[in-house]
Design a protein around this nucleic acid. Structure first.
Length: 299
DNA sequence: CGTCCCTTTGGC
DNA sequence: GCCAAAGGGACG
């Protein structure tokens, strides 16, 4: 809850169109906030990000739905909140399934990209939730993420390719590709960097609200306390957050290898452990309330 | 089922 | 034409 959200009225409907589109960076708001307001009013933690106590202006939905968004497809744009049956358009005469290509609104894209920036793989539930928020179908969200991953991959390939020799390749991996997005992040969503780690007190709540992405991990300084008390006991692993995420090896690895080169996993620096701390491996207890001190440190 | 990958198709 | 939303096949 660190980030103070400035204006509750989020999302300028027009984030910057697309990279290639000309529209100027809409600097409508500060660089951080709004996003939180997208959160569902729901009771459960879900939209990670900063834990916003704010009750969510339902205006968001409206915004997304009938935002005068420029790019809203004139015709298509069918926001089936639920599974979208394959196009069955007007099916006149010809049965040929004519492909319907939805044009996502800028708002939707902003949110999607912002999310992607933090998480390349979403669990089923996360996708569903996101799809509800965006008023898109689950399938659309899933497809979008897939396409995005592919795009990311291609981009990565190309850039590695062209500037292979140059040392500059060392740029912090995960951010490189994301920079592509910054243009409209500046005027739309909070940037991908979030200072939520410092002196955060983790309890089951904050934990489940945290989006674990590469940056988060790498920025985290795991000391003995943090890590070992975590101990990743079965309870921790099976707690909501982890369950909601369908971790397979692929998802896991890719999670940490955002579009750049390789990503360095968090270095665990074990200091001296006070045995007392460790042994107490009470299932969830430890998990419920411990704090992490983090020393600012670049990645 | 989800993901990867390639292809098709439609907006712009 | 380019790009991105989908379709579809292969794979696990």
């Amino acid at each position: 809850m660190s980030v103070a959200l400035a204006s509750p009225q989020s999302l300028p409907e027009a984030c910057d169109p697309d990279s290639r589109d000309s529209s100027p960076i809409s600097t409508v708001l500060g660089t951080e906030e709004n996003y939180t307001s997208l959160q569902m009013p729901s009771t459960e933690p879900f939209y990670s990000e900063t834990v916003s106590p704010s009750p969510l202006p339902s205006s968001m939905d409206v915004l997304i739905q009938d935002s005068p968004d420029s790019s809203t497809s004139p015709k298509v744009k069918e926001p089936a909140p639920v599974e979208n049956s394959p196009v069955k358009n007007e099916g006149k005469g010809q049965e040929k399934k004519q492909k319907v290509r939805t044009v996502f609104t800028q708002t939707q894209l902003c949110i999607l990209k912002d999310r992607f920036q933090k998480q390349r793989y979403l669990s089923l539930q996360q996708m569903q939730e996101l799809s509800e928020v965006l008023n898109l179908s689950y399938k659309q969200v899933k497809t979008w993420f897939q396409n995005q991953r592919m795009k990311c991959k291609r981009w990565q390939k190309n850039t590695n390719w062209s500037k292979n020799n140059n040392a500059v390749t060392q740029v912090s991996a995960p951010t490189e590709y994301l920079d592509l997005y910054t243009p409209y992040h500046q005027g739309c969503l909070p940037s991908g960097n979030f200072p939520m780690w410092s002196n955060q007190t983790w309890n089951s709540q904050t934990w489940s609200n945290q989006t674990w992405n590469s940056q988060a991990w790498s920025n985290q300084t795991w000391n003995s306390q943090a890590w070992s008390s975590q101990t990743w006991n079965s309870q921790a692993w099976s707690s909501q957050t982890w369950n909601n995420q369908s971790w397979n090896s692929q998802a896991w690895n890719n999670q940490f290898q955002n579009c750049g080169e390789e990503f360095q996993l968090p270095q665990i620096q074990f200091q001296q452990n006070s045995a007392s701390d460790l042994e107490a491996s009470q299932p969830v207890d430890l998990f419920l309330n411990y704090s992490v001190n983090i020393q600012p440190e670049d990645v």
